[in-house]
């Protein structure tokens, strides 16, 4: 093997290596280490091989949480992406309305996540909350509305919160994409006699593909990893109805101190997120193949 001429080049890579090691590699390898041991206490662990992985893969509570997670993230994408596009299309293109709508949209994004949970708890409370009192005064429901009363109520509250919180991000991304389309495209479409739908279908949507890819990926990953909001709102209840993967994981790891199974679970969780992000990315890349991503 050839000798390196200048070994000092290593020192230049070292800082990055140290940072990455402490931020990613060491924590990840610790989790891998835990996942193959049964830990009774500090310095008291037994090697168990793939036992925890097998246990986790057959755990019915995990399956339920995973199912819930898919439904939740699916609904998030189905609601937030079209809604975000609609908001972006409806936003003003010039004048004071632009800054006004941009600031209004940015407000939910600026609020800390656990504060959002608290806001919505108060908002939906049946005794003092605007929404809770309002919907109960209509007397439409057989049970008074309370986000802890029924699984469906908890889901509705959670979805409303999630949509309120993150649709602005999708809208802002789409708005940026729309603004990047040269005016000449619209003129050309007008001269062709294209309808508003055709303009959307053949100009705006293809031109927004780049930002939509980012929006879908961000919303997918973020909603799949959701923790703070359901934790603040219901703590995973009522029952287990809003126990998503991360809530179940935390219960397992810090509630029961099952560090081994929790570590195995974390790795599986990580791989699922990675796999689906990759699938989405590939799928969006191949839609209308041949176009450049803006």
């Amino acid at each position: 093997m050839e000798k390196w001429e200048n070994n000092r080049a290593w020192f230049l890579v070292l800082p990055v290596f140290v940072v990455v090691a402490f931020s990613a590699i060491i924590p990840l390898m610790t989790v891998v280490n835990y996942s193959i041991q049964d830990i009774f206490g500090p310095g008291n662990a037994v090697f168990v091989g793939t036992e925890w992985f097998e246990e986790m893969l057959t755990d019915s509570r995990l399956h339920d949480a995973l199912g819930r997670q898919f439904i939740f993230s699916g609904l998030v994408l189905l609601i937030e992406i079209p809604l975000g596009i609609l908001i972006a299309l409806a936003m003003p293109k010039k004048g004071w309305g632009v800054s006004a709508s941009l600031i209004t949209l940015a407000i939910p994004l600026l609020i800390p996540w656990n504060v959002i949970g608290t806001i919505w708890i108060i908002f939906t409370r049946p005794d003092i909350g605007l929404f809770g009192v309002g919907i109960n005064s209509l007397n439409l429901l057989d049970v008074p509305f309370d986000h802890t009363a029924r699984p469906s109520f908890a889901w509705i509250t959670l979805m409303a919160m999630e949509v309120w919180h993150w649709t602005p991000l999708v809208a802002l991304l789409c708005y940026a994409g729309l603004r990047a389309i040269p005016e000449a495209y619209y003129q050309a479409a007008k001269i062709d006699g294209a309808s508003a739908w055709s303009v959307f279908r053949y100009i705006q949507l293809p031109k927004m593909r780049g930002v939509l890819t980012i929006a879908v990926l961000l919303r997918w990953m973020d909603s799949f990893l959701i923790y703070a909001e359901p934790f603040a709102l219901t703590g995973g209840g009522p029952g287990n109805s809003t126990t998503f993967l991360s809530i179940y994981l935390v219960k397992l790891a810090t509630g029961q101190f099952d560090l081994g199974p929790a570590a195995a679970f974390s790795l599986i969780y990580f791989l699922i997120v990675l796999l689906f992000s990759f699938i989405f990315y590939q799928a969006l890349l191949n839609v209308g193949k041949g176009e450049k991503i803006a």
Binding site: A188, Y202, K207
Partner: peptide, 11 residues
């Protein structure tokens, strides 16, 4: 009309 920019339907 033909424009300075190359205007075609991208998809």
């Amino acid at each position: 009309m033909v424009y300075q920019q190359f205007i075609n339907y991208p998809s």
